[in-house]
Amino acid sequence: MLPLLLASSSAYRRELLTRLRLPFTSASPDLDEQRLPDEPAIALVKRLAQQKAEALTAAHPGHLIIGSDQVAVLGEQILGKPHTFERAREQLLAASGQQVTFLTGLALLNSSSGHCQVDCVPFTVVMRELSQASIERYLRAEQPYDCAGSFKAEGLGASLFQSTHGSDATSLIGLPLIRLVDMLLEEGVQVP
């Protein structure tokens, strides 16, 4: 089996990948993650997932490189990482009582053969009606400023949801393990 490399500095993605009980290392790709003009959200996350994997091929020949990227979509608006309390509050106020779809792009690149599998795994949540006070309490407790749409689903963010819908709950956190196992199997990797 080729060594696995996670092209990410995300602690959330590293924690998810450990669930597969496969040895891996991680490295952060240096990448401009800006959206292209008029780029649809699905195309954006698939492109960035693949580019993250490709960015590490020269430094890591002979690896299976996993790239992933995520955005939250509210109506026609893409919600990225808020980075600030104020932006996070705006995102959550807008999402209150609404349906938000998380799109997670996933790429598995064999840096030996150049074979790259790319997919997008959607996961939808219906938000509770949120008061400004409850949003501010959540933000102070979780500080989800590095999470798409200001949702930290692996923590208190789950309390913001009325319901969830999707085939792979791990995609909500940023690394769809069910789809990743399919990709690894295609590369001949047996997951315990």
Results as ranks from 00 to 15, higher is better:
E33L: 09
L64I: 03
S28M: 08
S150N: 10
P122R: 00
P122M: 00
G155I: 05
T170F: 03
L48Y: 04
L5M: 02
G166M: 07
L20R: 08
M1G: 11
E39K: 07
R19L: 13
D119C: 13
I178E: 10
T104N: 06
Q70H: 11
E76Q: 15
F24H: 03
M183G: 06
Q190E: 14
G114I: 09
R137Y: 13
L177I: 01
K52E: 01
V121T: 10
V125P: 02
E154N: 14
L180C: 00
L93I: 14
L109R: 03
L172N: 07
L79I: 02
D146Y: 04
A133E: 15
V191Y: 02
E15I: 05
Q34H: 12
L130C: 08
L36S: 13
D32M: 03
S167T: 15
R13N: 09
R137K: 15
L5S: 01
C147L: 01
A107Q: 03
Y145T: 06
H115G: 05
A94Q: 13
T57S: 15
R140C: 07
I135F: 10
I173V: 15
H165W: 13
T18Q: 13
A141N: 10
E142R: 00
E186V: 12
L130K: 01
H83Q: 14
P40I: 05
G155R: 05
S28V: 10
Q162W: 11
L6R: 00
Q98R: 15
Q98T: 06
K52L: 02
A43C: 09
Q143I: 06
D32N: 14
F161A: 11
D182R: 12
V71F: 05
L108A: 05
T18C: 13
Q117W: 09
Q91T: 06
G149P: 08
K46F: 06
P23W: 04
S26E: 09
L177K: 04
G155M: 02
G157L: 04
S8L: 04
F85Q: 12
K81G: 12
T101G: 05
I178G: 08
G105K: 01
V100L: 10
T104R: 01
L130H: 08
T101H: 09
R19W: 11
L56W: 04
L4Q: 01
E129K: 14
L74V: 10
L92H: 06
F161P: 05
A27W: 06
I42S: 14
R47N: 09
I65Y: 04
I78V: 15
R21I: 08
S150A: 15
Q143E: 15
E33G: 05
L6N: 00
K81I: 08
E129G: 11
R13M: 06
S113M: 03
T124E: 12
L185Y: 12
E136W: 01
S8K: 03
L74S: 07
S111V: 03
C147Y: 01
L17C: 07
T104C: 12
E15A: 14
C120T: 09
Q77R: 15
P192S: 00
F102E: 01
E136T: 03
P144H: 04
Q77T: 14
T124S: 15
A49K: 00
S9V: 02
G97C: 10
S134L: 05
I65L: 05
G62W: 07
D32L: 09
Q50D: 12
L103N: 09
A141Y: 13
L184Y: 06
Q34I: 02
A153T: 10
L4T: 00
D32T: 13
F161L: 15
G97K: 09
K152T: 13
